[in-house]
Design a protein around this nucleic acid. Structure first.
Lengths: 154, 154
DNA sequence: TTGCTCCTCACGTCACGTGAGGTGGC
DNA sequence: TTGCTCCTCACGTCACGTGAGGTGGC
């Protein structure tokens, strides 16, 4: 239940995330994702927090199309913000806190703009595909071809 | 005005599409995009049809996240369908025509499903980002930080 | 003890990036 | 003739893929 307990083996984590073990070892090599622990024999053990971080990396990679270096920057900004929330460290000077918050906000706005852009492109894409589909159906009818039952309304 | 006239130089095409000339030469090497002509001196000349094809390749690459081999398959299916529309070649037997139409429809449905998936993920992403943004704003207010004017409602 | 999973090299691949060194066209 | 753009190698890079050969854990 503790998200910091290192309980998962690399193969299990890889399968759940839809990547290979090679990818996990590569992310560790880059310092993007260090497994929380290891077995006595030296094999990697991942925690729930590691799993969540991996899914975040994959999301940023696949959905946002970012390279691993940019992902590293975003993750470390998020890490710093998360630390701010765990109020414990009042040691941080206010000027630094303000900087962290501003950075987090900037990244957030940047990402939102990019996602909106992608959404617009994809919506255009759907419309284009639907137009094509109906043209294909017209040709199919002429040829007497029976296509799939009906268009699935999503 | 003829879309088949080879009038653009590689640098012009690259800039308009937002890629490098290296990318264009690479696509030619793969047989994905052959320039319609060349200058007497041997430099590449691209037509409007080439330009459209390039934009299509980039769209499939960036928006759909497909590799160049899958893109080749999709483009050749689209090429075959376009040929069907130029009714000229009645030489093609009806069985072949039916096959082409079915293939085009299958690709269309596959792509539509993938795009819908991506749309759903991106919409979730926007919601997530907005949630984060409001949490960041709360912290900013506590710290007396002045962030950007206001959230842009899209 | 037998599988299955894990480990570390290390070379291969895809989609280009990035010069080096040289030629073409308004 | 002078820039600017184009050309062809060819090696480099990023994000892994894919064995080779060996060790660990229920």
């Amino acid at each position: 239940m503790d998200p910091a307990v290192a309980r998962y083996r690399i193969g299990e984590v890889a399968e759940r995330a839809g990547v290979t073990t090679r990818t996990l070892r590569y992310y560790q090599e880059l310092g993007l994702l260090d497994p929380a622990g290891q077995s006595p024999g030296g094999s990697r053990r991942y925690s729930d927090a590691d799993m969540a971080r991996l899914l975040r990396i994959i999301e940023l990679r696949d959905v946002m199309g970012l390279d691993l270096d940019r992902i590293r920057v975003i993750l470390s900004a998020e890490d710093r913000l998360a630390q701010l929330r765990e109020e414990a460290q009042r040691v941080i000077p206010d000027s630094r806190r303000r900087e962290i918050v501003r950075e987090a906000f900037e990244i957030n706005q940047f990402m939102r703009a990019k996602v909106q852009e992608k959404l617009a492109v994809l919506q255009g894409f759907v419309a284009e595909l639907d137009g094509k589909a109906s043209r294909i159906r017209a040709i199919a009818e002429q040829l007497g071809v029976d296509l799939e039952p009906e268009p699935v309304s999503a």
